[in-house]
Simulated assay, not measured.
Amino acid sequence: MSSAVEPSAAGSRVEPAPAGPAESHLVGLDIDGTLLTHDGVLSADVQHAAAAAQASGHHVVLASGRSLTAMTPVAELLGITSGWMVCSNGAVTVRLDPALPRGWELDQVRTFDPEPALRLLRDELPGARFAVEDIGVGFRLNALFPDGELDGEHQVVDFDQLWAREVTRVIVRSPEHTPDQFSAMAARIGLDDVTYAVGWTAWMDVAPRGVTKASALERLRERLGVDPGATVAVGDGHNDVDMLRWAARGVAMGHADDVVRGAADEVTGSIDEDGAVAVLRSLP
């Protein structure tokens, strides 16, 4: 069973367009492989295009599988200091405001009891590495992950301490398995009470049931009063599929696989071609 907590109510340079577009759009942007290269590089064109879209009055929302602590530096690079971020594949929504002591506050947190899923997954993958997220801090893990894969503080604990309290997500890492093998395993054991997505390696994110980037963005759309037809999403991974289907205009990056492309309305250039720039520049 999941629960929700809402702590608060509330190349060439692209010159920002005048504020006040005909209609403000809600634009959900994946980060890795969409805005940042796989080496973590943010191009000047992407930076300027995102700034121009926000300056025009659009709601530019970073929507990532990354945790809060890994997303705030990206928001800073993009110059996004106000608005919203969707973290942890939709489990955490944050309101950005430079007037706040930390520059952000938690808006909604969706959690679940990870014990049943962790027990099932350990039985299938006894040699895997497991981690659970502590919001704004880092992760508790049964073993350290490779350097650079997880951000924040890392605390190694006994396996049963991973379910000491409800969490926003579980991460499973099993390098000896292919993504296809991982997906088949997940389908076979029947993770019916959670939502899961298999990433670019044998990596799985397990979230509360029904929680995705799309569910968090839809909540923001309603809150901001954006028309459903004025929604845009750009992404490249399997955890972006629901978001691309949700948006009136779902755009897959050019390097995305057939599953992701099939969920989109259109395909833009690859990350090496700064494909997100064309989408951002096309906004009214």
Rank of each mutant, 00 (worst) to 15 (best):
S24P: 13
A9Y: 01
R173N: 13
V167F: 05
G225E: 15
D180Q: 08
A19E: 06
V279I: 09
E6T: 12
V267C: 10
S3E: 14
R245N: 13
A99H: 12
R129W: 01
S282M: 01
L26T: 10
G235C: 04
D97Y: 05
L77F: 04
M253Q: 08
G262P: 10
S12A: 09
A214T: 10
T72R: 14
T93S: 15
A278R: 11
E76W: 05
V14G: 04
E115W: 06
P284T: 09
V132L: 07
F145L: 12
D107V: 13
E222H: 14
M1C: 09
F159L: 10
L220A: 12
R261C: 12
A53P: 03
A230P: 07
N239V: 12
D265T: 13
A9F: 07
G250L: 06
G225I: 14
G225P: 14
T37Y: 01
I31C: 08
R245E: 15
V46M: 02
R129E: 03
M85V: 09
R95A: 15
I171R: 10
V277S: 01
A214Y: 05
M1F: 09
I189Y: 08
L78Y: 01
V132P: 06
V206R: 06
E15L: 10
R110Y: 00
T212E: 11
H238V: 00
D272E: 14
L42Y: 03
S82W: 01
V5M: 03
E23C: 13
S2T: 02
G136W: 12
R95C: 14
M204F: 03
G250K: 08
L77I: 00
R281W: 00
P101F: 10
N239M: 13
L26A: 10
G235M: 05
G254E: 04
N89F: 01
V60L: 12
W200C: 02
H58P: 08
V211R: 00
G199F: 05
Q161S: 13
S56D: 03
D242E: 15
A50T: 02
L78K: 04
R119G: 00
L283T: 09
G79V: 00
P175L: 11
D45V: 06
L125T: 13
L220Y: 11
L280M: 04
G83M: 07
I271T: 00
L35R: 00
P18T: 05
D134Q: 14
M1E: 13
A63C: 15
D151C: 10
T34A: 01
E218L: 08
A44I: 03
D107S: 15
E15Y: 07
L141T: 02
F145Y: 15
H48D: 00
Q47C: 01
R173M: 03
S64L: 11
V60G: 02
R281F: 03
V137D: 14
A75W: 00
E124N: 04
A55R: 08
G11R: 03
G199Y: 04
Q181W: 03
L100A: 13
V14F: 04
A70I: 01
V5Y: 09
S270C: 08
V211P: 01
R219Q: 14
A44L: 07
S270L: 00
